[in-house]
Design a protein around this nucleic acid. Structure first.
Lengths: 141, 141
DNA sequence: TTTGTAAATAGGAATGATTACGAAATATAA
DNA sequence: TTATATTTCGTAATCATTCCTATTTACAAA
């Protein structure tokens, strides 16, 4: 077990949640893939190791892991998708529409927007960039 | 009929689409409401005038009107929502989480992001701000 | 004004994602 | 080890959305 996983186990414990095989495996899958996965995709992967695993387990754990910031979520192609959360600093993502790879972007002008709309209170915001990553751009060219 | 509606009728015609009662009423509803409506909400409103109107009609027309830029769409609370399209210039929206009212924001640093990720090709992006509008902020205070 | 026809609609059924729930199994603290 | 709170299973239910076919409608051309 690497240090990363130890950290996630602590986080589960700190939130009064139990460290179960399935949760650990789910986190492992998200660590391996560095992209957004839908519940279905995750279930496919989990199902090879835990045949017949329940939707409830998948969805509940996705919800839970997102809730305690081990995962982050977005809606893509009409379904919720999840990826392992970057715990560094405030950021957004570029998502490759071809391979699903994500890249972190740091620039975020939320204070500029707050100035433009001075009489509203911005409590939340979403920024997502889509396109082709370096590799896919070259392949399709 | 006001000039605005005439313009939408032209747009339908220009795209080889027929001007039907239901489409005109749908556009009218979106003109009255200045916020995002879900398919269900729209159906509720349409149903008072056209009892038993089909889902297919609602969804197909939402798709069509979005396709020709009479409406614009976003995913909110796990469902697609639509509003009348602002035809001015590139912009994004602030959405009040209490009353659903939207406000246009113009500042968009997409070129800054493109610089930050110089080897990818950004073809699309999404920016949305959420919070409380001036009114709702004061009421809830 | 009439008519031909391509487009639009009605009325449901089907699909796909997500949530709900009672019973059984299991992890953790004491 | 035991108590108990949590998780999981297996499945049904729900909700948004799409699909299908017969029928109706808009509208361009005669």
């Amino acid at each position: 077990m690497n240090g990363q996983m130890k950290q996630y186990k602590s986080k589960l414990k700190d939130n009064g949640l139990k460290i179960t095989e399935k949760r650990i495996r789910m986190i492992g899958i998200f660590l391996d893939e560095e992209r957004y996965l839908s519940a279905r995709e995750l279930q496919g992967k989990m199902n090879t190791e835990y045949p017949g695993i329940s939707y409830d387990t998948i969805y509940r754990n996705l919800y839970t892991l997102n809730d305690i910031d081990i995962l982050e979520q977005t809606t893509l192609d009409g379904e919720m998708q999840y990826k392992i959360s970057c715990t560094t600093r405030h950021h957004h993502h570029f998502i490759c529409e071809n391979c699903g790879d994500t890249k972190v972007i740091h620039y975020c002008p939320v204070q500029t927007w707050q100035k433009e709309l001075e009489n509203v209170e911005i409590t939340n915001h979403k920024v997502e960039l889509y396109g082709l990553c370096g590799e896919c751009k070259n392949v399709s060219a």
